[in-house]
């Protein structure tokens, strides 16, 4: 190498968008959009100023939560919420497993696959609240509507992730079991189940956690559980009781989080 004679070549990382005109058009367009969008938000400053003391009062209530005066309502609400959570997770899981198997392209024939994928798509299309409103209209107020709502949304969640996990299994292990002359059910039990079981348990624990949080929300639209108690407390400006409910929710969610992490660590 003739070190000094060489002219050093400049190098810069190539820009993500090659065409400079397009690149600058996108940058400027994004900036203009941002300015216009911020300008379009109408801020009612007097309402905000009015609300500040109420906000402070609510935050302050967390330092003096009142578990006692509405304890019976709170207790009943949580028992209902936890029942909704457990029932909907188990029911949803039982329905999800066959649908998840059917929605995995590597083990199911095309017609079954398409039907199962459609069920998943429908279940995932709507947010919990919308389905809760629908089921409350169908089954009336109360926890039954809540169980139906959360079971329904659990199907979309677990089936989809289970199907994707099945599609990712080691193909050779499946071939090996198939090559022994096993039946379809034996193939599921010997080749698929051992590969996806830890993840399925993890998903179920995670969904239990989600269903508990959702059960608090769907109560607001009348599907039973602690959500109903919570809205009542807010409507009556009983911020101390509301704070108590929120604190209990936080503790339960943290407990569930810790428990599911522990179980998932044990299973690999």
């Amino acid at each position: 190498m003739t070190g000094e004679a060489r002219i050093s070549r400049r190098w810069k990382k190539a820009p993500f968008i090659q065409n400079p005109r397009l690149r600058w058009a996108i940058y400027i367009g994004a900036a203009v959009y941002l300015v216009l969008a911020i300008a379009s938000v109408e801020v009612n400053w007097t309402r905000i100023v009015d609300g500040i003391p109420r906000g402070i009062k609510f935050v302050g209530a967390f330092f003096t939560p009142d578990f006692v005066s509405r304890w019976d309502d709170i207790y009943e609400g949580f028992v209902e919420s936890l029942s909704i959570t457990g029932a909907s997770t188990v029911l949803g899981l039982l329905i999800s497993i066959p649908i998840g198997l059917g929605a995995a392209r590597n083990i199911s024939p095309l017609p079954v696959y398409l039907v199962c994928r459609s069920i998943i798509a429908v279940s995932r299309a709507f947010q919990e609240i919308i389905i809760a409103i629908l089921f409350v209209a169908m089954f009336g107020f109360g926890p039954f509507a809540g169980v139906m709502t959360l079971s329904f949304t659990t199907i979309g969640f677990i089936s989809k992730l289970l199907a994707e996990d099945i599609e990712d299994v080691d193909k050779e292990q499946v071939e090996a079991i198939r090559a022994t002359g096993s039946s379809w059910l034996q193939l599921m039990n010997y080749a698929i189940q051992p590969q996806v079981a830890p993840r399925l348990v993890g998903l179920a624990m995670y969904r239990l956690d989600i269903n508990f949080r959702e059960s608090a929300i769907i109560g607001i639209v009348g599907a039973g559980g602690i959500g109903a108690t919570l809205t009542t407390a807010f409507d009556r400006y009983e911020f101390e009781s509301a704070a108590a409910i929120l604190l209990i929710i936080i503790v339960i969610v943290m407990g569930a989080e810790y428990a599911s992490g522990y179980v998932r660590n044990k299973l690999t």
């Binding site: 050779e172 090559a179 002359g181 096993s182």
Partner: peptide, 21 residues
């Protein structure tokens, strides 16, 4: 086919054992 497969043993490059069994 399943009956015929019983009489055909197969051995694989990556061993293809079901790892969690």
């Amino acid at each position: 086919l399943r009956r015929a497969r019983r009489t055909i043993g197969m051995i694989f490059q990556e061993f293809a054992l079901v790892e969690r069994l």
